[in-house]
Write a protein that binds this DNA or RNA. Structure first.
Length: 652
DNA sequence: CCTGATGCGTC
DNA sequence: GTCGGAC
DNA sequence: GTCCGACGACGCATCAGG
């Protein structure tokens, strides 16, 4: 056995360039070392974010059996891209830009939407940047994660910054309190204008693209490696990328992107539109990049290719156009069930959620359901929901029970059911253009006979009927409510099925309960949009024994005007107790202030939910109006009342 | 081993 | 899920 | 009108640290 000479291997590998060297060494040396990052840093001079990106890229290229090019990182410097593209697209005001970066960008002032479109078209058409179409779409959309949800909490960002600038996270949080915007906090603490040597755009895009699923110290190490090499402009936009929800160039939607792709990549605009209804814009870019026109031409609605379901519009209008099909609204998980058969009769089944995630594996019973359908191929749209069995008899389960049952592999005494309410594809035919009533007929013939069969997940047709006037509709609505369901959906009989879109041809009718609650605190907004509102949400409390106040939930803030008015009355009436408070939210811990009672909010909500610990909260709460100057606690609704509502909805 | 923090998914 | 705001 | 980010709820998986 020959002993490997590390030095020799490294010397030989380095002659192959950065990527080649890592590839050459990843198997014999780096893969075996516990600290690959330290090894790559010492011997190859690779910063951590590149080691991370290359490791992931190599993994992926092996899976997809494709070559990893030696120049997969060489591309336009990220700084130049920020300056030439992201800054003009972002619509940041010239004054702010001057203050943050000491410059106002290449155009001096804000671009209007026409100019932004032109810029995007020019960018997509420029093939000397070392960026492919997927990269470009990701940049224009400000989403390096390609449409997947990747969040980074505020605390993680501040931790990373604290490692780079040697300032405590607490001090940084205080800075954030006075500056108001995370991106700006990073910019202020960044000493350089420009990275040196410059980071390339791919060098930033690739680590971010693979960041999904990375957690804790690993994620922080990658981010730190990037942040400490960035100048102000670069760090500003990377932080924008990382903030979940916050995207640059938000004003330029898919439409503009499709226009630009059509113009620069010689594909038909109408074809792109059609494609867009079947896949998201990132997948579309990948298809154009890898398969070109032919790939686009092959795109069609077909089983086993997930598509976004049609979504209902907001609320039913006061005077809807009758007749309408009024259908029970089930509280569960929206699911598209796909069935496909090949020539030899082998059947494949899949189930996809509203955001096109594959839930087939989590729902073994879905196979039996699909097999029972008397057709070769089909795509059914419906709701996975459940029935809860308790001492007082069966009642519809809430979506939380359903999730617990599905994810926790039972443990909850509910029986899952799948209720189909639409069919969009049947045996080679795309039915999306057909009017709803025709699809309903098809569905009835297909699913009706299977109702009541003992399938692993029972299949049934949604409950509903054609109503000709409001009293008919309300009679049905009250019946559905009495049975414990959420309400109803009104569907226009002639509506086609709009894939992946929200349509007002389907509207909801749901209950609205209101309570008067005390506003006992406010959390600062994390918004970075202009002046906006100071507070992003409010803590509300109900009257409890004592009398005392018990917090019963948070309610999203008001519009800019109402919010400003509320803030001034808080100050006028001296409602600030001076105590600060913090609450955990899905986007990290948020800071806020405690308020003395004095503001009463009328809160509308759809029901009461109870978590594992027995705590009751309001579901989908919204502030209808606020009254100030209320000193009398007796006017408030009580915790008892909320408990009563919870019991009532359970046993109705 | 338990608990809290974080991320990601559903509504 | 809802809502408000920018376009 | 349409789009999308800022917000609400819970539950589960995973990891860090006492």
């Amino acid at each position: 056995m020959r002993v490997l000479d590390v030095e020799d291997l490294v010397r030989e590998a380095r002659s192959k360039g950065t990527v080649g060297a890592y590839q050459a060494l990843s198997q014999p040396l780096i893969g075996r070392r516990s600290n690959r990052y330290a090894f790559a840093r010492e011997h190859l001079g690779l910063p951590d974010h590149l080691t991370f990106a290359l490791e992931k890229e190599i993994e992926q290229s092996e899976e997809e059996a494709r070559e990893l090019g030696p120049d997969c990182l060489s591309s336009i410097p990220f700084h130049d891209l920020c300056y030439g593209l992201l800054l003009p697209l972002d619509g940041i005001s010239p004054r702010r830009s001057q203050r943050l970066f000491g410059m106002s960008g290449p155009y001096g002032e804000r671009l209007d939407s026409k100019e932004r479109r032109a810029l995007v078209a020019e960018f997509l058409g420029n093939d000397s940047l070392g960026l492919d179409l997927v990269d470009k779409v990701a940049l224009v959309r400000g989403d390096p994660f390609l449409g997947r949800n990747v969040g980074t909490s505020l605390n993680v960002l501040l931790d990373v910054l604290s490692q780079v600038v040697f300032r405590s996270p607490t001090a940084l949080r205080d800075d954030l309190g006075s500056i108001g915007d995370v991106q700006e906090v990073f910019v202020r603490h960044c000493s350089r204008h420009k990275s040196d040597p410059p980071l390339t755009t791919r060098e930033v895009l690739l680590p971010l693209r693979h960041l999904r699923g990375s957690w804790g110290a690993k994620k922080k190490r990658v981010l730190r490696s990037l942040v400490e090499r960035m100048g102000r402009l670069e760090v500003f936009f990377m932080i924008a990328f990382l903030r979940q929800g916050r995207r640059v160039s938000q004003t330029l939607g898919d439409e503009a992107l499709l226009d630009a792709i059509a113009a620069t990549h010689d594909v038909d605009r109408g074809r792109l539109d059609l494609a867009r209804s079947l896949v998201d814009v990132f997948e579309l870019a990948r298809i154009v990049r890898d398969e070109g026109k032919e790939g686009l031409a092959q795109l069609a609605l077909k089983p086993l290719s997930p598509v976004g379901p049609m979504l209902a519009g907001p609320e039913i209008p006061k005077a809807p156009n009758f007749p309408l099909f009024f259908e029970k609204k089930y509280d569960g998980i929206r699911l598209m069930v796909h069935k496909a058969s090949n020539e030899r009769g082998a059947i494949r089944v899949a189930a996809y959620t509203r955001r096109r995630h594959d839930w087939t594996g989590q729902l073994p019973g879905i196979n039996g359901l699909a097999w029972a359908l008397p057709c070769r191929e089909v795509i059914l749209d419906g709701e996975l929901h459940g029935t809860f069995f308790s001492e007082v008899g069966p009642r519809p389960a809430s979506v939380y029970d359903v999730m617990k049952h599905v994810r926790g592999e039972g443990g909850v005494p509910i029986k899952l059911r799948f209720t189909a309410f639409d069919v969009i594809y049947l045996d080679g035919q795309d039915l999306t253009e057909r009017p709803f009533h025709q699809r309903r007929d098809v569905l009835q013939r297909l699913v009706g006979p299977l109702s009541g069969l003992p399938l692993p997940i029972p299949l049934e047709l949604s409950d509903g009927e054609l109503v000709r006037a409001r009293p008919d509709m309300m009679r049905l609505y009250n019946l559905f409510r009495a049975q414990g369901y959420e309400g109803g959906i009104a569907k226009e009989p002639n509506a086609p099925y709009s894939l992946g879109r929200r349509s007002d041809q389907w509207t909801k009718l749901k209950p609205a309960i209101t309570l008067d609650l005390a506003v006992t605190g406010a959390l600062y907004t994390t918004s970075v949009q202009g002046p906006g509102a100071t507070f992003g949400s409010y803590l509300v409390s109900a009257l409890a024994e004592g009398p005392s106040l018990q917090e019963v939930g948070r309610v999203q803030g008001l519009g800019a005007q109402d919010s400003a008015r509320l803030l001034s009355s808080i100050l006028d009436e001296g409602l600030l107790t001076g105590r600060r408070l913090e609450r955990d939210t899905s986007s990290g811990r948020k800071a806020g202030v405690e308020l003395r009672p004095g503001i009463v909010a009328t809160v509308r909500f759809e029901g009461v939910v109870r978590d594992d610990t027995g705590k009751l909260s309001l579901r989908d709460p919204k502030i209808l109006r606020v009254r100030t100057g209320e000193k009398d606690l007796g006017e408030l609704d009580t915790v008892k009342e909320i408990e009563r509502l919870f019991q009532k909805q359970r046993f109705s």
